[in-house]
C-alpha cells in the first residue's frame, strides 16, 4: 500500500518558554551505534553538544568585546594586555579551581 491515512501530528506540544525541552532530543529509536558501548555513543553526543554550546558562548563573548570596542569603551589590546590585580587574581583562581572541581568530579 502506497498511501494511507495517518495522524501526523507531533508527539509533543510546542512550548515557547522552553523550546529546547519542547523540541525533545532528536534521537530516534533507530539511532545508530558507532562504538562498542551505547553509553560511549551517548557520551560523544553530549561532548559534541558541549563543543557546540562552548562555541556559542565564545561567539557571544566575541560579540560583547566587539560592541565594547565599537563604542570605544574597551579596546581589543586592553583585553589582550589585561592583568588582574591581586584580589582579582585570587578571585579568578578560586573560580578556575571550582570549575575544575565541578567538571572533573567524575574522575575523583
Amino acid at each position: 500500500m502506497d498511501s494511507m491515512e495517518m495522524n501526523h501530528s507531533l508527539p509533543f506540544d510546542a512550548d515557547p518558554i522552553q523550546p529546547a525541552a519542547a523540541a525533545a532530543t532528536g534521537r530516534r529509536p533507530d539511532s545508530p551505534q558507532f562504538t562498542d558501548d551505547p553509553m560511549l555513543d551517548r557520551l560523544y553526543g553530549v561532548t559534541l553538544a558541549l563543543i557546540t554550546e562552548l562555541a556559542v558562548t565564545r561567539t557571544r563573548l566575541d560579540t560583547v568585546e566587539k560592541l565594547l570596542a565599537r563604542r570605544e569603551l574597551v579596546a581589543g589590546e586592553e583585553i589582550e594586555g589585561f592583568t588582574p590585580d591581586d584580589s582579582e587574581a585570587a578571585a579568578r583562581s578560586r573560580l578556575q579551581a571550582e570549575y575544575l572541581d565541578r567538571v572533573l568530579r567524575s574522575l575523583d
Binding site: 510546542a14 512550548d15 523550546p19 519542547a22 523540541a23 525533545a24 534521537r27 553526543g45 559534541l48 557546540t52
Partner: peptide, 12 residues
Amino acid sequence: EIRQHAGRTLVA
C-alpha cells in the same frame, strides 16, 4: 542531530 535540534528550538 544538533542541526535539527537547533532548528526545532528556533521554530518552536
